[in-house]
Nucleic acid binder design. Structure first.
Length: 644
RNA sequence: GGCGGUGUAGCUCAGGUGGUAGAGCAUACGGCUCAUAUCCGUAGCGUCCGGGGUUCGAAACCCUGCACCGCCA
């Protein structure tokens, strides 16, 4: 039996899941579901990366142990994946005991082989930040955060002899051109490798950073970043002795975004080689999702939160959009408008309507029972459609393993379009008027039902819920993870006489604002609108507009008065992530009173500079005479909670 | 400074080995009535960023310039 092992990166728990995480994970899920359909025995791994400076600092800022902090954010990731239809086999955390053991095992092994050495270097160190700075990172020779001059300091650490593996890696990538794909990223790695590699620093002194895995050969040091994180891919399946490791590591595939190409394309292969572990099979690298002109960035408030959109527009619609819109490897842009356009055009109009009209006619002409294939296909009429069926299945089979998701989907949609065209050409409603045409009508409707069934099978990896819904209504028992491409995409598998039912629309159209404005408001409605405007003094908005405002519960962690300003106070607010916000509330609220308070924050306000200080959000308050009162939640609430 | 990416219709973008420029959306007109105001058809719109080169033939390959975007030091 074929085996298949796919991983996502382990996500660093310093921020909430965003669309990039969602895309990577959905890609892995799609491939994994596809492999199940091909009859492979699969294993799908995801997880969280929980050690390091940033976590230790964030936890300290909240006054809780790092593990507690990591537990919370890791929980966010564990909660979101089921909501996006992700069906993984294991969720690994770098704080898991098995992982820690495996990391120490690898370190000891590489150390014993003489590939890790101890070395001392000098650098510029900021005591406030507890870290070294490069000269170019400094502002006027001072730490950008603390505005103090760093001191020269000597530190010793352990280094991995990565440089030694450069030639081997170049050779491997040249002999295995498919190893890193798409090709552009293989070229990028090869061009990195044209320059001499430096050795990799793999430790931090425990006195400076104790939130990490202790080096097995020197407990005064902890493991730093990559020797901890990357090893998850083998520790999760029981390296070195586990059965799963033996079965699945030889067929390992990683999915990553291009920002971590270097660690996965260079460090990781060198580490594997040094530890005597075989190289992974494929590294699959995708691009960035962009909103508007800039790269997605949480500091600009342009993060699209998948959890917010998936339930509004439907989880399958969201998955479809991500897989159809991005060419794997290239960047793509995300916007609500593009999402809605895809939903209306591809899902509601093409697929949803095809399904709806097919079943409505089956109801009308055959009391909702599957008719027989009474006649052989009519070459002239049915030939094109049957050709599209074959093509869609072939593209599906070829493109998904080659990461051509958009091609697989467009082939399926060509089939859907051909079926819609077929209905118009054949005009079953005309056939139905003439009793002599009954066999032909039966054949035509059965053909359409078969096409719908095959579409339902082929969209399964992308849209598992819709696939099951369609198959259920078509009276097909086998669905979901039981589907096998060989058996279930074959023509004529429906059973004559099986009842079908139409059900609700698969994908209701999403009304767009442009369309709404075209439709004149009803007379009574218009009057009501006018009256409401008069009463409140504000024009009415619809719910979509309101939903664009990202309101969240924020916990004020720090507050200080802005010098030379009587109204402004600078706040550090936790809204699930840390935000600097400048608020005009100093006249009524002293900084000391503000710390610890929970307030309501507009989280997606465009950043602004007030008195030269950047503000990334706004605190809501109500004016009451001369007084100003903050809007607060009824009871203590988790920071970051979305207000709706 | 170094490296890389991108530039194709009004918009968003596809364009496996070089062979008459494509899709969706948007716009205009027409057709159908099974269907979620959906579907089908027709039409228009292109300096494939500019300039050179290779070739019988270039959006694609090579060189060069410009613009935008990343990454690294």
């Amino acid at each position: 039996m074929n085996r298949f092992y796919i991983t996502t990166p382990i996500y660093y728990v310093n921020a909430e899941p965003h669309i990039g995480h969602a895309y990577t994970t959905i890609v892995a899920d799609v491939i994994n579901r596809f492999q199940k359909m091909m009859g492979s025995k699969t294993f799908f791994l995801t997880g969280t990366d929980e050690h390091g400076d940033k976590i230790a600092q964030a936890a300290r800022a909240e006054g809780i142990p790092p593990k507690a902090y990591a537990d919370r954010i890791s929980g966010l990731f564990q909660n979101i994946w089921p909501k996006l239809g992700i069906d993984y086999d294991k969720f690994i955390r770098t704080t898991d005991p098995e992982h820690i053991q495996a990391v120490q095992y690898v370190l000891q092994k590489v150390f014993d082989a003489g590939e890790i050495y101890f070395s001392t270097y000098k650098g510029l160190y900021c005591v406030g930040c507890e870290r070294f700075y490069m000269e170019r990172e400094l502002v006027d020779g001072k730490c950008p955060d603390h505005d103090t001059a760093p001191v020269e300091r000597e530190e010793s650490n352990y280094f991995f002899r990565m440089s030694k593996y450069q030639d081997w890696l170049i050779d491997h990538l040249e002999k295995n051109p498919e190893c890193i794909r798409p090709e552009r990223y293989r070229n990028e790695v090869l061009s990195f490798l044209k320059e001499p590699l430096e050795d990799l620093c793999i430790s931090r002194p425990a006195e400076r950073l104790d939130w990490g895995i202790p080096l097995p050969f020197d407990s005064k040091y902890v493991t730093y970043v990559w020797f901890d994180a990357l090893i998850n891919y083998i520790s999760a399946i029981g390296y070195p002795e586990g059965e799963l490791y033996g079965q699945f590591w030889p067929v390992a595939q990683h999915v990553i975004a291009k920002d971590i190409l270097k660690p996965h394309g260079i460090y990781w292969p060198a580490m594997l080689k040094a530890a005597g572990v075989p190289m992974y099979r494929n590294l699959n690298v995708h691009g960035y999702w962009k909103t508007g002109e800039a790269k997605m960035s949480k500091s600009h408030g342009t993060v699209v939160r998948p959890l917010d959109l998936a339930p509004v527009y439907g989880l399958d619609a969201f998955r479809y959009f991500l897989m159809r819109e991005m060419v794997f490897g290239l960047d793509a842009s995300f916007s609500k408008e593009a999402l809605v356009a895809r939903i209306n055009a591809d899902l509601a109009n093409d697929l949803g309507n095809l399904f709806s009209r097919t079943l409505a006619m089956t109801d009308r002409y055959f009391e909702g029972k599957t008719p027989p294939l009474a006649l052989p296909p009519d070459e002239a009429m049915d030939g094109e459609l049957l050709g599209k069926v074959d093509n869609a299945i072939r593209q599906f089979r070829e493109q998904i393993p080659a990461l051509g998701f958009h091609r697989a989907l467009s082939a399926i949609w060509e089939l859907i379009a051909a079926a819609n065209r077929y209905i118009d050409y054949v005009a079953p409603w005309s056939l139905a008027k003439n009793p002599d045409s009954l066999p032909r009508l039966q054949t035509v409707m059965r053909t359409l039902l078969e096409v719908n069934r095959i579409v339902a099978v082929l969209i399964y990896p992308f849209m598992p819920e819709t696939s099951s819904k369609m198959l259920e209504r078509l009276g097909v028992e086998k669905r979901g993870t039981e589907l096998r491409l060989d058996q279930d995409a074959s023509w004529g598998a429906l059973v004559e006489g099986t009842p079908v039912f139409k059900g609700e629309s698969l994908f209701p159209r999403v009304e767009t604002e442009g369309k709404k404005q075209e439709k004149p408001a009803q007379g009574a409605n218009k009057a009501a609108v006018a009256q409401r405007v008069e009463q409140t003094g504000s024009p009415l908005i619809d719910i979509d507009l309101f939903r664009q405002v990202d309101l969240r519960i924020g916990q004020i962690e720090q507050a200080e008065k802005v010098p030379k300003s009587e109204k402004l106070v600078k706040l550090l607010v936790d809204i699930g992530e840390k935000r600097q916000i400048v608020a005009g509330i100093a006249k009524t609220h002293s900084p000391a009173d503000l710390v610890g308070k929970q307030v309501v924050i507009v989280a997606n306000l465009k950043p602004a500079k007030l008195m030269g200080i950047e503000s990334h959000g706004m605190v809501l308050a109500v004016r009451d005479g001369n007084d100003l009162k903050l809007i607060v939640p009824e009871a203590e609430t988790a920071p970051g909670g979305r207000i709706s």
